[in-house]
Design a protein around this nucleic acid. Sequence first.
DNA 1: TGCCATCGTCGATGCGCTTCGACACACCGA
DNA 2: TCGGTGTGTCGAAGCGCATCGACGATGGCA
Lengths: 335, 335
Amino acid sequence: MVTINDVANAAGVAPSTVSYVISGKRSISPKTRRLVEDSIRKLGYHPHAGARALASSKTNVLALVVPLRTDLNVAVVMEFVASAVTAARAHDHDLLLLTKDEGPAALQRVASSAIADALMVMDVETADPRVPMLLALDLPVVLIGVPDHPAGLSCVDLDFTAAGSACVAHLAELGHRSIALIGPSPAVYRRGTSYATRFLRGFDEATKARDVRAESRACAHSYEAVSACLDDLLAADPGLTALVVHNEAVLPGLLSDLRHRGLRVPEDISVIAVCPDSMAEQHAVALTNVAIPAEEVGTQAVEMTMRRLAGHTTPEVRLLGPRLTRRESTAAPHA
Amino acid sequence: MVTINDVANAAGVAPSTVSYVISGKRSISPKTRRLVEDSIRKLGYHPHAGARALASSKTNVLALVVPLRTDLNVAVVMEFVASAVTAARAHDHDLLLLTKDEGPAALQRVASSAIADALMVMDVETADPRVPMLLALDLPVVLIGVPDHPAGLSCVDLDFTAAGSACVAHLAELGHRSIALIGPSPAVYRRGTSYATRFLRGFDEATKARDVRAESRACAHSYEAVSACLDDLLAADPGLTALVVHNEAVLPGLLSDLRHRGLRVPEDISVIAVCPDSMAEQHAVALTNVAIPAEEVGTQAVEMTMRRLAGHTTPEVRLLGPRLTRRESTAAPHA
DNA sequence: TGCCATCGTCGATGCGCTTCGACACACCGA
DNA sequence: TCGGTGTGTCGAAGCGCATCGACGATGGCA
């Protein structure tokens, strides 16, 4: 193993000088700098992460807590993780993966073992039991999602309330007077998952404000559940002309089922989805959608974290405005 | 911060004794053990990861290199990551996420900074440029996928060659004499991605051995590409009665398109997919599939890694046998 | 009763790095 | 010419832990 001493010897300087060349915390003459940098390159020196962490109490590692239900949301979670790790590397940090399943204890462990410098937490619930513990942690924490009482924690997410309203607005402007929301599975609502309840709120407020007839249902993602959900909605409101789908997993089955029923999209029924753009474009009828900006959220989460690490102490709550893209699946209802 | 000294003082023993209680590397009297464990619990002591790494040259971290093309394979990658992190935690290790994009340099960095104890590498190519470097690394390395020359590296994966054969065998036994393979996008083949070429080989061998008429196409995952691909296949062989789909992303579009063409599944055309079970069950016509056992591969990869870390030095190559589940999408062809 | 082996505990050392205070030297103005 | 002010470099200390050799106590056996 190549150590800082080896580099120092090779360059004919003191180890501390090498350290200062690397960190830039003291001024170094151009001559010495060149000498040291050459030695570093020649020897292939990389500082020992553990030693560095021990001496400086900084690990250059960010911990990310992800939900590991592999049946749900995968595309979004994956995209988020991808952008987070990329953004973290851009700031010379690595990403450590934790699972929600391990619960609060894992957060304690990571914090008090000094494994990571900061925490990013996904899949936040409205009354998330982890929030109090996170507050006590005195590590920078950024939540992806917004709990009811973020207290002193930073948050970033799509503005799902606005997204819910935007869907309704789009449909209402096309002339729809009777629409339904197909939401995530009942379990998601039961857990009080932040984005689900916020979206529903936006949907409800907007339909009320515009005096649009509205129904909403939680929907599991099996084909049978989708089909039953549609039965139910059409029975409750035979005049239904539009669907808002806040449940990506359900889309293929839903579109199949609509066709089975002889309902054409968008001629007989309009469909607007909340999903990544790539998914919206993947279907035979390209879907009008509100994009889930997983990539931007991931990047923002990292940026906010880095800001906290740099000493920026006031927590921020950042809600990204929804972006609705009109494609082929929405149209004015037939008379 | 609570240190080992604090615990030692609280328990009235020497720091080294606390260390031995934790590691179990020397025998400790029951009385002392209880004393120490109580103090640990009372103080909420967690060893400092950096200090531990420095003193013992072990980090208890596994690095996982994932491909971050978020458009492809997401479900499989996600499931794999999920099981890997869970398995790693079961062995008291954490998981660090690296991206393939960073290339070989990232592997060097991680190895020589002693950030992780071992590497697991996904998305291996037949002639993967990372292999030589990984060999030189003197860290345990486990590949997910099998390159042409694994040399001294451990590998684990689904036996895609057998999977390709199994698909053909199933269809042939149903009586199909003319089948086509819809594979991953051209870019995947161009990169020489291990699983794509191995599956194709199994498909080719089996169709030849059984004297079945066969076509195969790479297929991008846009709806247009799928449609064009089907046009092409049906033109090349109007008597086509079955499709093998080794491209999960394409399934929703493909099934839509078949219906548009008036081709019923399985009455007019059989479809067998290589995809996770959850995805197979999600469609209106439940799909016969060969499962991608991402979860088992992830677990196995970790187990193999732990074995290497425990001193088990001979590299293993482990290919998991394919599991084909018959559902509704395959049937005997009509005369 | 005395000796030796065994078991359990302790103290010291060093892992590789950052950081702080000290210091040598050059340069400026008086 | 001399004191003063930076600038660039050095040496030492210490971060928290694992590990090794040493050592005291205990018990068995002769």
